[in-house]
């Protein structure tokens, strides 16, 4: 599993493709051969390993399709002064 993860609510998607344009790692695409309940080609993730959890897709999505998760940051070890 990569640094981030998105969960897609397939039936909310209208296939506008704005998220495909803004994804910085280019892992989003409109599904070429499946339809959702509304009849649109919904967005799919082609390679979840590359997801950074930046939430760019969630920021531009007009239909609130995405839920975004990211790996917790480990607290940096602070050297204790002697």
């Amino acid at each position: 599993m990569g640094k981030g993860m998105v969960v897609i609510d397939v039936d909310r998607c209208k296939g506008c493709g704005l998220c495909v344009h803004v994804c910085p790692v280019g892992i989003l695409a409109l599904s070429p051969d499946t339809f959702n309940a509304k009849g649109y080609h919904p967005v799919i993730v082609t390679d979840m390993e590359k997801c950074t959890g930046c939430a760019s897709c969630a920021t531009i999505c007009p239909d609130v399709v995405f839920t975004v998760y990211r790996k917790k940051r480990q607290p940096r070890a602070v050297p204790v002064p002697a």
Partner: peptide, 28 residues
């Protein structure tokens, strides 16, 4: 378990599907 939630559906929005055209900034 090591993932934290970054973005989720806002509480102040209902789960109704909007009638806007695909890509309409009204949704944003």
């Amino acid at each position: 378990e090591d993932m934290e939630l970054i973005y989720e559906y806002p509480e102040a929005m209902t789960t109704t599907y909007t009638h806007y055209c695909p890509g309409c900034p009204h949704g944003i």
